[in-house]
Design a protein around this nucleic acid. Structure first.
Length: 270
DNA sequence: GCTGTATGCAGAT
DNA sequence: TCTGCCTACAGCG
């Protein structure tokens, strides 16, 4: 379930479980050929930027770079000798913990200059305390592309994916088709502040919840819903269902090669 | 068993 | 703008 908050959460979990510990490393599926070279190395401080995860080791200057892509996932188990099931690209094991990685689009051991290059092409990350949102604003302000497209661009803002783009635009009542150049500075600032809040919550809880208390089903006199992506949301994958605020049907259209969801009535271009 | 789908992105066209 | 790729699982016959 990889938007940026998941990678930051994973970095924390890796640090809490195998940080500072000598681990065994393998690639049961065989595609991460550098894995065996990491045997008996000590895990350094794992960190994330945008949707990229980096795992350093104390004895070497290279780091493992992981990008989960669409369906990559880590599984952490508080046990050893866990049977290998499915296609495990990378297994890291410490006494008491097993971490399996499946389905990543990238899992590679890379040198410092390659790490720098990846970080350099990423826009500010709402989960980075030192992020400079002004850089994102400058790029958005210069673009005629729809804001819903720009929010998916990792070199503009890193870490935002298809759920957060739809939800933050709904929460800020912004028309997803509004060109970046037509977005007001105050609306941009509201979007950024909301991303900081939503993604910090996502990192803490491991799920995306965006519905404000006053719009919760109980508060609105409705039956609670059971969404299948692990969180409570306003519009993501709720096409044709009634908007939680105005009850008009949620709309759905492919934008920037991904399914966009929005409420035409709530998100006006004023 | 097969098909479609998914919170992503690079590289080709 | 399109295609390919990484994997698991639901839904269907």
């Amino acid at each position: 379930m990889p938007e940026g908050h998941i990678l930051h959460r994973l970095a924390s979990e890796i640090n809490a479980t195998v940080g500072g510990v000598a681990v065994s490393s393998s690639s049961p599926q065989g595609r991460f050929t550098a894995a065996s070279g990491l045997n008996n190395l000590t895990v350094g401080h794992a960190w994330a930027r945008g949707k990229h995860l980096f795992v350093p080791f104390n004895e070497i200057d290279h780091q493992v770079h992981v990008h989960l892509g669409l369906y990559g996932a880590f599984t952490l188990t508080a046990a050893n000798d866990v049977p290998v099931t499915g296609q495990v690209r990378w297994r890291v094991e410490s006494p008491g913990h097993t971490i399996d990685l499946r389905g990543p689009s990238r899992c590679e051991l890379i040198e410092p200059s390659a790490i720098d290059a990846i970080v350099a092409r990423l826009g500010p990350d709402a989960l980075d305390p030192d992020a400079q949102p002004e850089l994102a604003w400058q790029r958005i302000n210069r673009s005629s592309q729809p804001i819903a497209h720009l929010l998916m661009e990792q070199h503009i803002i890193s870490g935002v994916g298809n759920v957060y783009r739809a939800e933050v635009l709904f929460r800020q009542k912004i028309d997803p088709f509004l060109p970046g150049s037509a977005l007001s500075k105050s609306d941009f600032e509201a979007v950024w502040a909301d991303l900081v809040e939503l993604m910090a919550y996502g990192k803490l809880h491991g799920r995306i919840d965006t519905v404000r208390p006053e719009h919760e089903p109980e508060a609105m006199g409705r039956e609670p819903r059971d969404d299948d992506h692990g969180g409570e949301v306003y519009v993501y994958r709720r096409q044709h269902q009634p908007c939680l605020v105005c009850e008009n049907p949620v709309k759905n259209k492919v934008l920037a090669a991904r399914n966009l969801f929005w409420c035409q009535e709530c998100q006006t271009a004023d």
